[in-house]
Amino acid sequence: MPNNQDPLSQLWQQQEVQKPDYQALQTSWDKMRVKQKLYVFFDVLSVLVTFFIIWFNKEKLDDFTLSLMTIVLLIAIAAVFYLTWLRRFSLGWSNQNTAMYLQQLKKQLENNIKIANLSMHSGWAIIVLLVFFYAGLYIYEAFPLDQLLKKIYLTLAIHSLLLPGIWFWAKKRKQRFVKELAELNKILEL
């Protein structure tokens, strides 16, 4: 049994240790809370923006656009639930025993890779959706051709900047989580 007369324990207790910086700790705590709230805010915002666009423009929108926007809204709601489900392990598992904690940690890293994959490939889905959307507008003659072309050019310009940015960001995150998972497996095998 361990006891305080043990020479190893005595040596252990005599080491000089660093102390936490409580001021910095308070700052980290505040930042962390803001970050968590922002995650939830942006998840909810992605759904609300689509909802309000539909709600305030329902009279002006043609049937095709309205149907497509409703589908996008449903996909956004499903995505928010799925992402929250994938992030569930990050919410307070640190007080589990270590064996269980490590299982959760591995699962969370695997889920983070899935989230990064989802972000990477959401670009393709957006492109397919846009092609489908503009093809529909053209077929149903929702706008005069020159007006429609202007809209297509603007959308192309925005997305040609936005989508590669999202792709590279998600790819970097994926690489980081894959490396972390490999490292975790390695240190646990030792």
Binding site: S94, N95, Q96, N97, T98, Y101, L102, L105, E180, E183, L184, I187
Partner: peptide, 14 residues
């Protein structure tokens, strides 16, 4: 101690 070690393992992996 349990929480501290768990956090430290995460740090090492990261």
């Amino acid at each position: 101690l349990r929480v501290a070690h768990n956090k430290a393992i995460t740090h090492v992996a990261y």
